[in-house]
Amino acid sequence: MNEYNFAYLDEQTKRMIRRAILKGLAIPGYQVPFASREMPMPYGWGTGGVQVSAAVLTPEDTFKVIDQGADDTTNAVSIRKFFEKTANVAVTEETGEASVIQTRHRIPEQVLTEDQILVYQVPIPEPLRFLEPSEVETRKMHALEEYGLMHVKLYEDISQHGAIATAYAYPVKIEGRYVMDPSPIPKFDNPKMEMAAIQLFGAGREQRIYALPPYTKVVSLDFEDFPFEASKADQVCGVCGAEDSYLDELITDDEGGRMFVCSDTDYCRTRQGNIT
């Protein structure tokens, strides 16, 4: 007998979150307010993603958690253990084995399938927040589809840096209607968002849930003369040699030594296994 209710949350909380998820799926890209609960971890450690995962998990699921692509960082390990203990679900580090993947700031390199669900941890769900601090105003801007300010911001990037310098949390437009924050994933991952899996976004501190059904149209904002570019470090992985995967830069000594390695640890390990 487990001393927790299945997946930690009480049933009424799960119903409230589940209703928010369904409305989120019905209005892709729109941020649904929900009564976020205190979780046994601090805000900023994925409480939104954890609540969404708790509402979505079934006992048959296989759960994977990644933090910046890695399965073995503190945040990923502790959330994985949390659901091992409270929901008694199987866990995995293999992307292909997982039915529910909770992620902080990356989309796995391996293409996700219809049978998978990707749950994002979101710090600031409102893409306009750094341009307009008032929730009353940003809500009105979404209602009126008034997104000129976001284009001004991207234009200022170009006028200052000669290119759109925004490299992560790159704003996207959903089905030609809502501008959405894809969470702080690198813009390299933006094109992957038109996928076969269901994508759910949870922001615990900010109390918002939003969602993308499979195959929803996701367009990264840009200009005709400055088109969107899914950029990454112009290197290959120093461990597995991948040319197509998003790379982290690691400092290896105090004499300027550095190397680039895949940020997706499962992808890198799988490739290493195939090479040897």
Binding site: F6, I21, T58, A211
Partner: peptide, 17 residues
């Protein structure tokens, strides 16, 4: 908790697809 979890998965898959 278990019955509702399976039921919601079905309802969510239906609404998402």
């Amino acid at each position: 908790p278990i019955d509702a979890a399976y039921a919601f998965r079905a309802a969510m898959n239906a609404m998402a697809r």
